[in-house]
Computed example of a mutant assay.
Amino acid sequence: MGALLYGFVILIWGLTWIAIKYQLGEVPMAASICYRSAAAALLLFAYLALRRRRLRFGLRDHVRMAAIGTLMFSVNYLFVYAAEQHISSGLVALVFAMTLPLNVVNSAIFLRRPIGRMVALGAVVGLGGMALVFWADLSAFDLTGGTTLGVAQVFAGAMCFSLGNVVSDRAQAAGVPIVQTEAYGLLYGAALLAVIAALTTGFGFDLSVPYVSSLGYLVVFGSVIGFGLYLTIIGRIGAQRAGYVTVLFPVVALLASTILEGYVWTWYALAGTVLIVAGNALINTRPEVLKSLLRHRREPLRRR
């Protein structure tokens, strides 16, 4: 079941990169993200009301939910959307994959969880794979124009997302339900975005089919289902390992781009994909299992 949840999140979020493209343009970024978060929150609260789930929580729980909403459902997206105006989506995906090592470091700092060797090794292998996949973007990188700003914005978004992972990990450890956390988090995030939009760019809406349909996908799949599954994964395997999703879903985005946009694969991209999968295997294989596999492989050699 854990692997199935993991796969669904990778698939759903891998396709959101295509949907986000249709959100950029006529409607201000803060407004678009606000619509997405508000609509997702309404759907979740409707579900919770129908199921008569608990909706009253203490102040400490609401503070955690507000922090998750700010870090994961609003400010994070503002940084990422803004960065796509300065750098390619490939480089955005590569820099956002820094969520993985940031999760490892932040979990060690704030949750006092030791950094496992396999997690660290898998992170290095996976990030090396990402560098190969997006080698063209890296080789063309320079510090002129808005490139530096774009990279800084994505890194800031990745840091927000990582800190949100840590808060979610702690909230679940304290017994705060996942669906309610997501619902209130989206509501708080939408409220913050509404204030930002009102004070800066204002609102607007695009009734075109591409905008409305992509917004629908981002609301139902990207936010309600995607984040619900991801928060569940954090509760099951911790923020350290869950962060590897950010390394895997760009590969799905490339596969979608191959079909929909004519992306041409290179040997660098193929080799990088292999390393990403290998890094995922290292991170999600328990040390005792790996030791057992190595032991079984050594025994036949000794018999010879």
Rank of each mutant, 00 (worst) to 15 (best):
M72S: 12
L5D: 14
G126P: 10
I259S: 11
Y81F: 14
I68P: 00
A49Y: 08
E288F: 03
W135Y: 14
G129S: 10
Q180D: 00
R51V: 05
P28A: 14
S257Q: 00
Q172Y: 07
T99L: 05
V95N: 06
A158Q: 06
F110S: 09
V212Y: 04
L282A: 03
L100E: 11
F249N: 15
Y217P: 12
N76W: 00
D61V: 08
I233G: 03
F73R: 02
I196L: 13
N103S: 08
Y188F: 06
L186S: 03
Y6T: 09
A271V: 05
L218C: 10
E261F: 13
L301N: 01
C160Q: 10
M29Q: 14
W17P: 10
S208K: 06
Q153W: 13
Y35K: 02
G228Y: 00
A93V: 10
Y6L: 03
T258D: 06
L229E: 06
A19Q: 09
W17C: 07
G25I: 09
L282F: 00
N280S: 15
A19L: 01
P300M: 13
A156K: 13
L192I: 12
T181M: 10
R56M: 04
L55I: 04
S89V: 13
H296C: 12
T201R: 14
L192Y: 07
L218Q: 15
L255S: 15
L5G: 08
F79V: 11
T258A: 15
E288V: 05
H86K: 12
I87T: 09
G145H: 12
S89A: 10
V166I: 15
L138K: 10
R51W: 01
L5M: 07
A39G: 02
S208M: 09
I276G: 00
L231H: 08
L301V: 15
L48N: 08
F73P: 06
A140R: 07
F8K: 00
A49C: 07
A38F: 08
T258H: 10
A67P: 02
V209C: 10
Q153G: 12
G279A: 05
L127S: 01
N165P: 01
V95L: 06
L187W: 08
G58H: 07
R64F: 03
G164Y: 02
A194R: 07
F249I: 13
S257M: 14
